[in-house]
């Protein structure tokens, strides 16, 4: 088994809510709520969940765009949270991010050439002419033309922009790329192109992805393992095939049954969820999912289940009283 590139333990990110003249701390938005998982070298971990469940916050916390409230992140065996200043800048080379909105993630005042040269300028790598060569090479790697260097982002379509965004992310040869819904702003035919590009790059450059999406079919296409998030917590994590064929958590079951399949009628959507996602400011007691769960028991509203291995499979973990070992 390949080694873990990223190990996350009890990571949490709370956004404080301050009120009144003296900015009294009244409550927290518990965007990421004590999450633990690991990512293996060379794999793609999918993070899936509905809007507002904290996937993007988790992604941004992993790369330290947000400072976590608590917990630990070990990146390549090193404690990533202890790194500061210059060494943090150096370490960032190894960990890059692709953003959701290709219209907002490229500076409108810079040409593509300037955007892609920036990584090298920041880390002071290569001479200007070498940089230009490398930029042209990068553009061709992501399926654009080298002659595009002097164009501005607004002269490209959404898909092309996302390619530029990807080129920027791989410019410094990182080992881990966090992709925050990279295709959700694109139309379906373009989505497939971008996903295939990401797959090719992964093979070519030995990349590890953390792929954040709310779209299960995209996740299914690309990911080796999948973590399902609900209200700041990971409720189930398993390999792709296991998760899709044998979902244990009621929330995962509901998600999977909601994927539209060709040839199935409306009547098959029997596991659809009712109700709204509760507020992360004041999450339900016990299991966060219990107010919407069809299999709710007494213990569910009293005690939160831990993310534990499902019987017979150490790779498949689920946080549900129905399935965990020693539950009920």
């Amino acid at each position: 088994m390949s080694q873990n590139i990223l190990e996350v333990k009890n990571l949490s990110k709370f956004f404080p809510i301050k009120k009144g003249l003296f900015l009294r701390h009244v409550a927290d938005v518990r965007a990421v709520d004590y999450v633990s998982f690991h990512v293996r070298q060379g794999e793609t971990l999918g993070l899936v969940g509905e809007s507002g469940c904290g996937k993007s916050t988790l992604g941004r916390t992993l790369i330290r765009l947000y400072e976590p409230t608590s917990g630990s992140i070990r990146f390549k065996g090193e404690d990533f949270l202890k790194v500061r200043g210059e060494s943090l800048r150096k370490m960032r080379k190894d960990m890059q991010m692709i953003f959701q909105d290709p219209y907002a993630s490229l500076d409108p005042r810079m040409t593509v050439g300037q955007i892609l040269t920036q990584p090298f300028e920041i880390h002071n790598i290569m001479t200007p002419s070498e940089r230009l060569e490398r930029v042209k090479q990068l553009l061709e790697t992501v399926g654009l033309k080298a002659s595009h260097v002097n164009r501005y982002p607004h002269e490209f379509s959404g898909g092309q922009r996302q390619r530029i965004s990807i080129a920027r992310a791989i410019a410094l040869n990182p080992s881990l790329v966090i992709a925050d819904e990279p295709v959700s702003a694109l139309d379906v035919s373009i989505q497939a192109q971008i996903l295939n590009l990401m797959k090719d790059l992964q093979e070519k450059l030995k990349l590890t992805y953390v792929f954040i999406s709310h779209d299960l079919s995209v996740i299914e296409h690309l990911c080796d393992r999948i973590a399902v998030m609900y209200l700041g917590k990971i409720v189930e994590i398993a390999t792709r095939d296991e998760l899709f064929s044998n979902p244990k958590h009621p929330y995962t079951q509901a998600l999977i049954s909601a994927i539209p399949r060709v040839g199935e009628g409306k009547k098959k959507m029997k596991k659809s969820l009712s109700g709204e996602v509760p507020s992360p400011i004041n999450p339900p007691s016990g299991c966060h999912f219990h107010p919407r769960c069809a299999h709710k028991k007494d213990i569910c509203s009293q005690k939160a289940p831990a993310l534990e291995s499902v019987t017979g499979n150490s790779e498949h973990r689920s946080a549900c009283w129905l399935t965990t070992q020693g539950g009920l």
């Binding site: 150096k90 960032r92 890059q96 920027r168």
Partner: peptide, 22 residues
């Protein structure tokens, strides 16, 4: 809060670079 600023941060850009260049 725009993503291109976040992107510059993840690239390891210094604050001064972000202010002046972006």
């Amino acid at each position: 809060e725009r993503e291109f600023i976040l992107a510059a941060k993840t690239l390891g850009a210094k604050d001064s670079t972000i202010i002046v260049r972006h």
